[in-house]
Every structure is written in structure tokens, then in C-alpha cells.
């Protein structure tokens, strides 16, 4: 019996040390990616290729979900606000919740599951089929050639995707509140413009998306690069990418929100 307990404690200790080890390795890998990203700017074609896969191909999911999120916000906002006779404030509610929170967070979550998982699977499979090792043998640095362009493409496309999400969401809210329900068109926009501040709401939202973009793509490329070179390893790494980056997005969102919007009142 005591032997079992000892084994259990040893297992816990092993896990803790292992995760700290991985964290250190991930940080070093992240730094190395930043240091070796010179080539992705000198040969910008590499980044453009990845922008196509991470950005352009994520457009449809971002736009469709943004539209529906905005429409739901419009409906729910109207439902609640009309009880107080404030249904013209539905534009304010839709715009503020999209620009401050839902746009960055939901777009980043979708981006993690659409593009982050693809990046991990691609790099993991390259590793499993020894393509990365072959590159190294030809004196091509796989971090500079494979990892850095994907990282920068993700970081660049994330703010654009989130901005499109918010715009389409506001349009969806407009569609439901003004076109379907019949809230006054003028007060919808004017109250929104009165309440949404450029510096306070929009710039802070864009800063959030940039942070999320860095976090999601850094996690995705690391998990791919660190995957064990088997079919099982790649699938596990893909799952870990989605789980870890979703948790990172939500945690970071809380931290950023508490820093940005504390001085509001």
C-alpha cells in the first residue's frame, strides 16, 4: 500500500516538473521564432501564402458566425431593453459588447479552432514525415522557413478577422433591430456613436485581438513543432492546441479587461 502512495506522489511530481519543462521549452521556442523571423519579412511571399490559408479561408466562418452573433444580440438586447422602454439603446448594446468583448474573444476562439488546429496538424505532420529533419539536413532552418511565416500570418490576420466579425455583427444587429423589429434607424446609429469611444473601446479591442493572435498562433506552432512524430501524437497535439489556446484566450481576456476597463467608472 505505501508503495502505491509513493508511486502516486512520484507521478504527480513528474507531471509538474514535466509541464514546467515544457513551459520553458515553449518560451525558448517562442523567442527563437521571433529572432528568426527576419526571413519571413525579406521573403514576404512565404507569409502571404500562409495569410491565404489562415486568413482568407477563415473568412467564411468568421463572417457567418459574426452575423448570427450580432442577430442574436439584437434580439436579446431588444427583448430586455424594451422592458425599460429603452429599445433605441439596442445599437449601443450590440456595438459595445461586440467591439469590447465578443468580437475579439469569439473571433479568436473560432480562429484557434479553424486556423490554429490546421497549423498544428500541418507542422506536426511535417515532423512525423521527417520533412523538418530533411530541411535541417539541407541547412534550411525549419523555424525560420516553416514556423515563423505561419506565426506572423496568424498575428497579422487576427485583428482583421476580429474587426470584420465586429462589423458584420453590428450589421446583423441592425438587420434584426431596425429592419425586422422596427427600432428607429437614426437613434440606433446615433446612440451607438455616442457610446462607443474610439480610443477607449475600439483601440482596446484591437489591442486585445493582437494579444490573442500572438497567443493562439504561438501555441499552435509550438504544439505542432513539439508533437510526437506519430499519427496519435499529431492528433493529440491538435487537440491540445484548441484546448490550450481557448483557455489562454479566455484567461487573457479577463486580465486585459481588468487592466483596460478598470478606470471606467
Amino acid at each position: 500500500m505505501p508503495r502505491r502512495i509513493v508511486i502516486g506522489i512520484r507521478g504527480v511530481g513528474h507531471r509538474v516538473i514535466d509541464s514546467i519543462w515544457r513551459l520553458g521549452y515553449a518560451s525558448r521556442f517562442f523567442l527563437l521564432t521571433l529572432l528568426k523571423s527576419g526571413i519571413s519579412f525579406r521573403r514576404f511571399g512565404l507569409v502571404i501564402r500562409e495569410l491565404y490559408f489562415t486568413g482568407v479561408l477563415s473568412l467564411i466562418i468568421i463572417i457567418v458566425s459574426g452575423l448570427f452573433v450580432g442577430m442574436v444580440l439584437g434580439l436579446q438586447g431588444y427583448e430586455t431593453l424594451q422592458r425599460f422602454g429603452a429599445e433605441s439603446a439596442v445599437g449601443t448594446m450590440v456595438a459595445l459588447s461586440l467591439v469590447r468583448e465578443l468580437g475579439p474573444v469569439v473571433a479568436a476562439l473560432l480562429f484557434a479552432s479553424r486556423a490554429g488546429s490546421a497549423i498544428t496538424a500541418e507542422i506536426g505532420l511535417m515532423k512525423a514525415t521527417d520533412q523538418l529533419a530533411a530541411m535541417e539536413m539541407m541547412a534550411v532552418d525549419p523555424i525560420a522557413r516553416v514556423v515563423a511565416p505561419r506565426f506572423w500570418a496568424g498575428v497579422i490576420s487576427m485583428p482583421f478577422l476580429a474587426a470584420m466579425f465586429s462589423v458584420v455583427g453590428v450589421f446583423g444587429g441592425y438587420l434584426v433591430a431596425v429592419v425586422l423589429i422596427g427600432v428607429d434607424d437614426g437613434s440606433f446609429w446615433s446612440q451607438m456613436q455616442n457610446a462607443v469611444d474610439f480610443r477607449y473601446d475600439i483601440v482596446n479591442g484591437v489591442i486585445k485581438t493582437c494579444v490573442f493572435g500572438v497567443a493562439v498562433t504561438a501555441i499552435a506552432v509550438f504544439e505542432g513543432y513539439d508533437a510526437s512524430p506519430t499519427a496519435e501524437g499529431v492528433s493529440g497535439a491538435t487537440t491540445r492546441t484548441v484546448v490550450t489556446s481557448s483557455l489562454a484566450i479566455l484567461g487573457l481576456d479577463f486580465v486585459l479587461t481588468s487592466v483596460m476597463f478598470r478606470g471606467m467608472s
Binding site: R49, V99, F160, M164, S166, V167, Q193, I202
Partner: peptide
Amino acid sequence: MDLWVGVFVMAGIGALLILALKVGNL
């Protein structure tokens, strides 16, 4: 591919502009 990426970046910048001018109070 370049064309599509160009369209994507244009749409992104356009969305940021709409946010700033139409939704926000800039």
C-alpha cells in the same frame, strides 16, 4: 493567392475604418 490575400487585407482595413467611423465616435 496574392489577389485573395489583397482582398482580405483590404476588407480588414475597411472593417477597422467602419468600426472607427461608423460605429465609434471618431
